[in-house]
Amino acid sequence: MPLPELSLSLQFARFDDVARHRAALPRHRVARCIRHALELPAEITVRIVDAEEGQQLNREFRGKDYATNVLTFDYAQAPLVMADLVLCAPVIAREAREARRSLADHYAHLLVHGTLHAQGWDHETGDEDAEAMEAREIEILAGLGVRNPYR
C-alpha cells in the first residue's frame, strides 16, 4: 500500500548548534518518518526551535512554563491532516544523550509521536490510550529501522 501524500515545510530557527540538528534532520528523513505515521494525506510544518521559543509556545498554548520536546498543533484530521510540529532542539539533544540514543533516532521518534498526535492519538487520556499509542510508535519506528524508544 502506498504511503499517504505529504506537503512538508521544514523550518529551523536560528540557535547555537543548529548545524548538528540540520544534519540529523535531512528533509527526506523527516518526510519518511512523518509519511510512515500518517493514515491520510497531510500538510505539515515542522519547526525546530531553541529552548526560549519552545518554552514560550508551551507556556502560551499549554500553560506549562518549560520547554518540552515536541508540541503538536493540529488544525484538521480529515480528509487532510493539517498540523504544525514544533520540536525543541536543546531538549531533544539532552534526552537523546541521557537515553544513549542517536539524535537522528530520537528525532524520528518525536516526529512519529507528533504526527500521531496530529491525527487524534493521545497518551494523556488514560493507560489504555497510552499503551495503544506507544505500541503504534514502536511498530512505525521498527519499520523505519529505529529501535524501541521505550527500552
Rank of each mutant, 00 (worst) to 15 (best):
R20T: 09
P41K: 14
E43H: 01
A51K: 10
H28Y: 06
F61T: 14
V18D: 05
V49L: 00
V46E: 14
D50G: 09
R47H: 05
E5H: 05
A13D: 15
G54D: 07
K64I: 12
A19S: 08
L6H: 08
H21E: 09
I34A: 02
F15P: 05
H36G: 01
S9A: 14
D16Q: 01
E53H: 07
P26T: 13
D16Y: 04
G54Y: 13
I48E: 08
A23G: 04
L38W: 05
A13V: 04
E5G: 12
R59T: 12
N58P: 13
F12N: 07
R20V: 07
V49Y: 00
D50A: 10
A13W: 12
E53Q: 12
R22K: 15
I34M: 09
R20I: 03
E53Y: 10
G63F: 05
F61P: 05
A31N: 04
A19M: 09
Q11F: 11
C33N: 12
Q56T: 07
R22T: 10
A19F: 09
T45V: 14
R47C: 04
E43I: 05
E52I: 06
Q11W: 11
R20A: 13
H21T: 15
L40Y: 13
Y66S: 10
I44N: 05
F12Y: 01
A19H: 08
N58D: 11
E39N: 02
I44F: 06
Q56W: 03
E52G: 07
P41A: 15
L6I: 15
H28L: 07
E53M: 14
S9I: 15
